[in-house]
Every structure is written in C-alpha cells, then in structure tokens.
Nucleic acid binder design. Structure first.
Lengths: 233, 233
DNA sequence: GACCAAAACTGATAAAAATCATGTTTCAGG
DNA sequence: CCTGAAACATGATTTTTATCAGTTTTGGTC
C-alpha cells in the first residue's frame, strides 16, 4: 500500500462525498475498507450482479456503462479519483444496472455494504452529501436525456469532448485530453454509430478545432467547440 | 379542505416517500404544510426559479419538463397522487431545472424548505427513502438515456405508451389511458417530432394495437405493444 | 349551434444518421 | 522486427427521421 494506506490521509479525503463525514466514521471506514488495484480493461462489477458495497477511487479512471437491448454499450458516466461508484444499485436495493471497467490502471477502495449503510444512518452530514450527489447525477442525466432527444450528433460530439475535458482535464501540454478512449467508446458516450463519431471528429479536425494523433485528441479551439456544441446553459 | 385536511389522514400517507417518516415529523409537516389547488394547465413552478420547498401531490397529475436549448419541451417525468416533486433542485442547491405543469385539476401540499431539510436531518428513515427515491429516478433516467441513444422511435413510442399505462393506468373501461395528453406532449415524452408521433400512432392503430378517439388512447393489445417496444429488461 | 383557433393528420421532400463495404493504419504479442 | 487482428478511416448507399406544406378535425367560447 502506498500513501493512501489510510482514509484519513487519503489524497481524496476532502474531494469525495465523504468530505462531510464525521471523523469517527471515517476511521471506521478506514478499518474495514479493502484496497485493490485494477489494470486497464479490468471489470470492477458487471451489470446484473449484486452489490456488496461501494467503491471509492483513489487513483485512476473508470467508465460506467449500460448494455443496450441489442448489446450496444452506452457509457453513462466517467469517473475519476475521488469519485464513488456502486451506490445507485445499493440504495435502490437493485442489482447493478451498469458495468464498471477501468480505463487505466486504477487504485480503488471497497467499502462493505453494511458499514456504508450504518454510517449513512448515523451521519446526517454524509447522508446529505449523498443526496446532493444523487441529485446532481439526476440533473446531469436529465440534461443529457434532453440533449439526446433534441440535439444533432455534431453538437453532442462537441459537448462530449468538452465534457471529457471537464472530467479528466489535459495532459501536461495543456491541450491533449488526459484519457485514452477508442473511437467506439466516444461514439458510445455520444450515443451514435462509431463511423459517425469518426467522421465528425475528422470534420472538427478539418475545421481546426481538434488535432488527432491516434487515440490522442488535442483540443485546439475550445471556444469554437463550445459554439459547435450550441450550449445555452 | 376535503378529507386530506391532515397529513396523518391523507390518502397518500403510506403511498409517498413519507411512508417511513416518524409520526412526530409527519405531525410537524402537517402543521406547516400549505394545501393548494391547481387547474389543468397551471404552472407550479418554472425552470430557472428558486425552490422554496417541496410539493406532495394529494390528487391529480403533473408533468415535469425541461426546455431544450431551442425552446423545445422535453417531458422528463409524469407524476401522480403520492408523488413528491421539487426535491431535486432543493437538494442540489440549484434553481429548478424543469417546469411543473398540472395535466388536470390537482390538489397539492407545499412543504417549506427549512422544515423539509430539518426533518430529513433528524429522520434517517426518511433520508433513506429519499435516497432510494433519487436512486430509482436516476436509474430510470439512465435507462431512458440508453433507449434514446439506441432505440428507433417506433420502439420508444410503444415503450412510452406502456409507461403511461404503468403511471396513470386505465379508465373504468380497462383500456383507455387515464390521462389527457396532446400528440405534441406524447412526442415530447418520446423525444421526437410531433408528426412522427402522430404517424406512428396511426400505424399502431392500423396494426390494431391501439384505438384512437381524439385525445383518448385505448390500448387494445398490450402484448403486441410490448413486442413493438422490444423490451429485454 | 356557429365560429375560430388550435390540434390532428397526411403527403411530399429534405436532411440526418446508420449501415455496408472496403482500404488503411496502429499496435500488442510472438 | 514482423505479423495479424483490431481499430481507424472514408466513400457509397439505404434507412430513418425531421421538416415543410397543406387539409381536416376538434373543442372551447360567444
């Protein structure tokens, strides 16, 4: 275990939903948590299986995706250090409705269900943070839903690129998106066919808004991308 | 005030998220709640305004909708007696991200923000129900999102009709959907153009799955509709 | 019950997006 | 460094869906 051996000293301590949790409960979580490392491509959990707790990302990147009825992947969330996952199914009392896969090597702590639930019951501050988190996710989902129903793919792709930027930021050069996603994954984030995503990315490249170098995507003109995304809010 | 003059005796007492709230808090809510009647078409609150509390429907039907960037309505939820609304914005600390409009004459109680929040802090049972509610909504939104991205309009319309049936049920005849929605509203629920919704409804009619009589929609063959919706889960 | 605006409907057309086909590049593993 | 499968890319074609234009029906109001 590296420097995140304890929750108290974890780099994400005040960056996650646990920021408002009382110290005593953080200590309890620290004692019972199980840390693990996942390699790029490894599955944390699969749609349809039962949740036994929640996961807290210490380092790394995760994608959460649904399997559509015809087997097509729909990526519904991108997660990073400090993010918590697995709580939706647990709180609903459902099985997982999405699968979680590591987008890069990831260090993650597992918090058992019983502990999580009991702390949630005893710590109204954490419960409130949790409700806020759920509300924010719901908000995001509703906005995305509206955009899926109403905006053309070009705008949605631009929006998605900006969203990736917001989520994972840039590499040291200040322009390259700091995550490795295939064209197919980008398409499954936008909600379109892979070919369409590829075609529009080339268009953006031709228009000078982005630069493509294999999986590396550089955002050259953020302002024009924002315009292409046609964002009002 | 009719028979719902008190929360304790409200017909929705054990039908809403407040089912798990402690009796003492229900009494508090009862003292501070404000009951109101809205006529069909009246607005409860508007996207962009600030929430001052939550609403609990005693009787009636409400639609919740976003305004898309180009002004097009996207209906994101249909609500009925026992449902609570307005909590999303309140818990996020945001302004309303959707507008609420009565689909028929509706009786609704307003619970002030401070009371709601303080009860939520003191009653872990209610807090848990609230988290469950949010998780369920999030789940629904994510499923809808996937379907919007991946399913053709015909399937989505069939699904929407089934959803309306689940939500509002039938009139006494056992076949007529028990809500008055315009074709445009159905389209805004499906996420398509009004003409497309009209066209496909006629198709369903031609196929003998539904019967159309003005705004009244009768579901004749539920099984075939389910097949048309291509539902796996 | 007549009137009128709004809603429902229908057909034609255009636009958007998916699919299919095929060639090219990339990159992990031997 | 070679090689083959997977990913990327691009053009052609088809399908889906939106838009436009016009007619009919509906339902609320005087």
């Amino acid at each position: 275990m590296s420097d995140h051996a304890t929750c108290q000293s974890c780099s994400q301590r005040f960056n996650s939903v646990f920021c408002k949790a009382k110290e005593e409960f953080v200590n309890q979580i620290n004692e019972q948590k199980i840390c693990n490392t996942y390699k790029r491509g490894q599955i944390l959990f699969n749609e349809g299986s039962y949740p036994f707790g929640v996961y807290c990302i210490n380092e790394g990147k995760i994608k959460l995706s649904h399997q559509g009825d015809d087997g097509k992947e729909q990526i519904i969330r991108l997660l990073k250090a400090g993010d918590v996952l697995g709580y939706r199914a647990l709180l609903s009392g459902d099985r997982y409705s999405a699968s979680a896969v590591a987008l890069e090597d990831t260090q993650i702590c597992f918090i058992p269900k019983d502990l999580f639930v009991s702390v949630l019951k005893l710590d109204p501050g954490l419960a409130f943070e949790m409700m806020k988190l759920l509300s924010d996710e719901l908000h995001r989902a509703e906005i995305k839903l509206t955009h899926l129903a109403q905006k053309p793919i070009r705008e949605r792709l631009a929006e998605t690129l900006l969203f990736i930027k917001e989520t994972y930021g840039f590499e040291e050069d200040g322009t390259t998106l700091n995550v490795r996603l295939s064209r197919e994954e980008i398409a499954n984030l936008v909600g379109t066919a892979t070919e369409s995503a590829i075609r529009l990315l080339s268009e953006f490249k031709k228009d000078g808004m982005v630069e493509l170098d294999g999986k590396k995507i550089k955002i050259l003109k953020t302002k024009e991308l924002i315009k292409a995304a046609n964002i009002q809010d």
